[in-house]
Design a protein around this nucleic acid. Structure first.
Lengths: 110, 110
DNA sequence: GTCTTATATAAGTATATAATTATATAATGA
DNA sequence: TCATTATATAATTATATACTTATATAAGAC
């Protein structure tokens, strides 16, 4: 059970098509920024700025690997259960991720 | 299972402390505008405008009774299940409603 | 009819948000 | 070292949002 305010903050964060999609993607697999750029067909700064908001609120974590920064959902977040029950209502993004894999993820990031 | 965009719209609507609280209240009991004004301690136009957004998106319904307009959650909304699974994570607003009842709802609305 | 109460809407203002473009940083590899 | 790639940040702009104040509408009481 969360506070109303805390919950509203999470909902506001996920109440944006781009961030909700990013969250749904990360719920399937970790991704680096350029993969998200490729899937979402948006500019790199726009994606970075959305990731920043998610990170500032602790919803995602970042891990640096060579020149890439991989983002993942923060399963330790207090609101993770809320996020999961929301994601249960939206289609998973397997297709998008598979499409990316077929193009060769490497080609995208290198 | 909803579309990402549709879900984002709902989350954005509920991603506001006032609207989330109104929704949580209406999940307990129907309310007229002046009751919400009393509970939320906000101006009447502010409450009306939030109710308008909720109504425009079909989340709430209104019923006129004499000079009052009672609002209720629209259980027929496609996203009602999503809304319920979100509300399951926030405290119900029984206390606020009870506090209002003790003051005498009649006194508030007349 | 007029007065009061409940609610809605309009106009204005201040702030927040999302995007773009340009630039900075950081890591890799030649 | 320099060039390239990946990512972040800053500055700007356009739009959206939440609220206030003032006013309109609608219903009931008198």
């Amino acid at each position: 059970m969360y506070h109303i305010e805390e919950t509203a903050t999470i909902l506001k964060l996920l109440g944006d098509k781009t961030r909700l999609t990013i969250t749904a993607i990360l719920n399937e697999t970790d991704c680096c920024v350029c993969e998200l750029v490729d899937i979402l067909q948006m500019s790199q700064p726009a994606i970075s700025q959305h990731l920043r908001k998610l990170k500032d609120n602790g919803l995602v974590k970042e891990t640096k690997k060579a020149q890439w920064v991989f983002y993942s959902l923060n399963k330790q977040h207090v609101c993770y259960p809320l996020i999961q029950s929301i994601l249960a209502h939206v289609p998973n993004q397997r297709e998008e991720i598979d499409r990316l894999a077929q193009k060769g993820i490497r080609m995208v990031c290198e």
